[in-house]
Amino acid sequence: MPEGVLEIDRISKRYGEVVALRDMSFDVRAGELFGFVGSNGAGKTTAMRIALGVLAADSGGVRWNGRTVDLDTRRRIGYMPEERGLYPRMKVLDQLVYLAELHGMGTNEAHTSAENWIARLGLRDRRTDEVQRLSLGNQQRVQLAAALVHEPDVLVLDEPFSGLDPVAVDVMSQVLREKASAGVPVVFSSHQLDLVERLCDRVGIISAGSMVASGTVDELRSGGAARLVVESPTTEWAATLESVRLIERNGTRCVLELADGTDDQTVLHAALAAGPVHEFSRQRPSLTELFRNVVTTEGRSG
């Protein structure tokens, strides 16, 4: 079973005056699904291209099990580029066999594996069709098969879910989960944050070329200032507490942000002292809110 860690270590990349990546670091461990989120132009694709050696970094390095990734280790990576790419006039089966062979498989092994993934991804009827004659969704499946056909030790997928119908999304999620549980580190980027939240073990949020937050979804959601949702007829009691800030008020519901180290029970007592309390809960931001928060903060500071 392949096991190992993919480490991205302080990579930087500039295109002329534009800084695409600034000291970006993260690692993906064996059996882990790592979701990579960030707004357009944040540097996701650049980071993945550098990890695959398709692009050279100005500084920093990419390591697999502690060793710098070279062409031989790179052959063990399954890659799905953001810009989908297959030979339009090549037949599905021929194409997959060719790619498997290029990644170091013998001819027989390549055939077996190509047929296997064609069957897994429901492409059996189309195996001798030219790729350009396939629907967009089926082309996406072939693209996934192209990333998987050489049974890679690492998966790096740039926007694997874009353009997929809900059934294909399920198939894709299932395949990724399966690969991860087989011990393969999986990195993928996506704009579908709910999907990332549901699927990933860990998430990295990048903005303007830097990793601004990373950790498990729970860690990220519970990080930052604690917030409470309180439903009570008045809110004047909140103003009397020094360590509490009113963020938002909507009818009788309000959202409060607590300064570090504030005991929520103190807040509850203060609220009860002022009147009846119908709801009192900790608010955990969704990944989308976190993302929006991070990106707008970064945007202001940058």
Partner: peptide, 10 residues
């Protein structure tokens, strides 16, 4: 067709 990116990864 951008297939070159996959090819150049190997």
């Amino acid at each position: 067709s951008r297939v070159v990116e996959i090819l150049l990864a190997t």
